[in-house]
């Protein structure tokens, strides 16, 4: 990764207001992503993945506090004016959200929801934008795009709607696409199609992508790098190949064991990790995973392990990492 990074995150922290006091959704996250590379972010539900994505998009809930630095193409996103931020979003930085049932406006036609980004950012006239919207619908694999463009979201299936959301995200040829669990809300049969569509479009457009998922199986073979999150922190980061060859953190190992098998019913994920994540409004000293970690020892409960790298740029935060030897079951 010697190239100048497209996205650089340094020591990012996000705190959200709650009735029980500030909730630390993200702590000390540092990341970097080169142009046209892809990064998977994996972690249990509640580990702060969405808040990290929203922090990059500067779309945090009201009252949220941010610390640290996020640089996109050299520009500090936290210092950008609202106007510049708006020019960036949708234009260079696009997003696909988790639930296509709720992420499209129910009272606007599909075509107009794609076209509006084009008129806003590309200065296209209404008619040209609509023609481009129809072409985009075709590109993301929606049959009869002219007819569909005039329909409303409720007239489409979940998978179709997610394709529409992808068409919206791709419309202005962004340089970075953030896809936050784009397949979690979909039928298993549709999931692979959507993931393949994303991978194909990314390559075609030389676009960088952050693919967020709770399922390690989704990033396997699909992204260049992987970062594993737990309790708002990155606990392991490596190239996807290296990570699957050798997991160093006990948490990643547990996640791996929790990959749903094809024969298991959907949404049985993570049943393999016993216990639940710590209360993010009550940070404890020590390693956040220690109450659930089968390797935890005395030190784990008093001191949090820092994220450090081995010789091959494989980062992990663990006092007692798993030994570095290849595993057969990858």
């Amino acid at each position: 990764m010697s190239e100048t990074p497209l996205l650089e995150i340094e020591d990012l922290a996000v705190a959200l207001p709650t009735e029980r006091g500030p909730l630390r959704a993200v702590s000390g996250v540092s990341l970097s992503l080169a142009p046209s590379r892809s990064l998977g972010i994996v972690g249990e539900s509640g580990s702060g993945k969405t808040m990290l994505a929203r922090a990059i998009l500067r779309l945090l809930p009201p009252g949220a506090r941010l610390a640290g630095a996020i640089r996109f193409d050299g520009r500090d996103l936290l210092r950008l004016s609202r106007r510049d931020l708006r020019r960036l979003r949708g234009r260079e930085l696009a997003a696909v959200f988790q639930d296509p049932m709720t992420s499209l406006n129910p009272v606007l036609s599909i075509g107009s929801q794609i076209a509006e980004a084009l008129t806003e950012h590309m200065g296209l006239a209404a008619r040209a934008a609509m023609a481009r919207a129809v072409a985009l619908l075709a590109e993301v694999g929606i049959p009869e795009p002219e007819r569909r463009a005039h329909q409303f979201p409720h007239q489409l299936s979940g998978g179709m709607r997610q394709r529409v959301a992808i068409a919206i995200a791709l419309s202005c040829e962004p340089r970075l696409l953030i896809a936050d669990e784009p397949t979690t809300a979909l039928d298993v049969t549709v999931q692979a199609q959507i993931l393949d569509l994303l991978a194909r479009e990314r390559q075609k457009r030389h676009m960088a992508m952050i693919l967020i998922t709770h399922d390690l199986g989704v990033v396997a073979g699909r992204t260049d790098d992987v970062a594993v999150m737990y309790a708002g922190r990155i606990v392991e980061r490596a190239s996807t190949r290296a990570l699957f060859r050798q997991m160093r953190s006990p948490y990643a190992e547990a996640l791996m064991a929790a990959i749903p098998r094809l024969d298991a019913p959907p949404h049985t994920r993570l049943s393999a990790i016993a216990g639940s994540p710590p209360d993010p409004t009550r940070p404890t000293p020590g390693c956040p995973f220690s109450p659930r970690c089968r390797y935890a020892r005395e030190r784990c409960r008093s001191e949090a392990p820092p994220l450090s790298a081995d010789s091959r740029d494989h980062h992990y935060a663990c006092w007692f990492p798993l030994p570095d030897r290849s595993r057969a079951e990858v």
Binding site: D11, A13, A15, P17, R20, G21, G28, R65, A67, P306
Partner: peptide
């Protein structure tokens, strides 16, 4: 991870 700035931001925020 707990730079002074972030601690301050937590303290500022009332429940």
């Amino acid at each position: 991870l707990d730079s002074a700035g972030k601690l301050a931001l937590e303290l500022e925020m009332p429940a």
